[in-house]
């Protein structure tokens, strides 16, 4: 048997950099270094572990939608051990929202062929966390999301979802869309060998016409939502800082009382 896993990954601005908005109120991707979203590393990791623990012939493809630089994210995933990569790039994609992105990803996943899609729990920039659910809806397959533990056996995916009020065990037949949390297991670092091997792995490039998507289905102009304003949050006014000389706890209590918390 064979198992085709497609891992969706996103190239995001570094969270520790100075992230801001461009003039058209999209995320500025020019001035900040980008990288593979850390939360997608967990998805790549789980795909590789499923491949390693399986007797089947497993192929792991990483897929990204994004500008030219997004290839860096694919390279990182390939150097971790993924087999091949797909890069969907088209200038008409600029400013595409979650609904549009899920369309592009779903078409690319269908074109690539899949048994299992694995995504991270959210991106580290937009962080809506809705793309996996949207993919399941578009592909018409089970959604098995926010797993902190995942396994695949005999065409069935199982996992644990830790929710607000309960921890649930989930189960679905393949094909399915899975997303994994940062509790699912530390992602590996690429080895030197992995980095060298990644250079020779195939990266396929597709544009919108390859996916039969019209320009008016995506992009900023056709987004389903519009950002009307973006303002930097005013810096918090500097607070009072005291050094504990033995009365720190009491001083803090005094402050809390002055603010009516006690």
């Amino acid at each position: 048997m064979s198992l085709r896993i497609v891992v969706t990954v996103k190239y995001v601005p570094d969270a520790t950099g100075d992230r801001h908005f461009a003039d058209d109120l999209t995320v500025d991707r020019d001035d900040v270094d980008g990288l593979l979203s850390e939360l997608d590393e967990y998805a790549v990791e789980q795909a590789l572990r499923i491949a390693e623990n399986s007797d089947d012939d497993v192929e792991v493809t990483v897929l990204t939608v994004g500008p030219e630089d997004a290839k860096d994210a694919l390279r990182k995933a390939l150097s971790m051990g993924a087999d091949k990569a797909i890069h969907v790039e088209d200038e008409d994609l600029h400013g595409t929202d979650a609904i549009g992105t899920s369309l592009v990803l779903a078409k690319a996943i269908e074109k690539a062929g899949y048994d299992l899609v694995i995504s991270g729990m959210a991106s580290t920039d937009g962080s809506m966390g809705v793309v996996p659910a949207l993919l399941a809806e578009r592909l018409g397959v089970p959604q098995v999301t926010l797993l902190s533990e995942v396994s695949v056996e005999d065409g069935v995916v199982k996992g644990r979802r830790d929710g607000d009020t309960a921890s649930e065990q989930l189960q679905a037949s393949l094909p399915a869309v899975v997303s994994v949390t940062d509790q699912s297991g530390e992602a590996r670092y690429p080895s030197f060998k992995g980095i060298m091997a990644a250079k020779k792995k195939p990266v396929t490039s597709w544009d919108l016409s390859d996916l039969d998507i019209e320009a008016d289905e995506v992009g900023l102009e056709n987004a389903y939502t519009k950002v009307e304003s973006a303002a930097e949050r005013p810096a918090r006014t500097a607070g009072t800082i005291v050094k504990d000389e033995g009365e720190g706890g009491k001083q803090l209590a005094e402050f809390l009382a002055s603010q009516k918390f006690i």
Binding site: R236, G239, G249, K250
Partner: peptide, 25 residues
């Protein structure tokens, strides 16, 4: 950088003292 009030100190000293003071008040 974010605080309205900050105490530079060992939490093992400050936190119990704070808790006691709140209970007392």
């Amino acid at each position: 950088d974010l605080v309205d009030y900050g105490v530079v100190g060992d939490l093992f000293e400050v936190v119990p003292q704070l808790t006691e003071e709140i209970k007392a008040r």
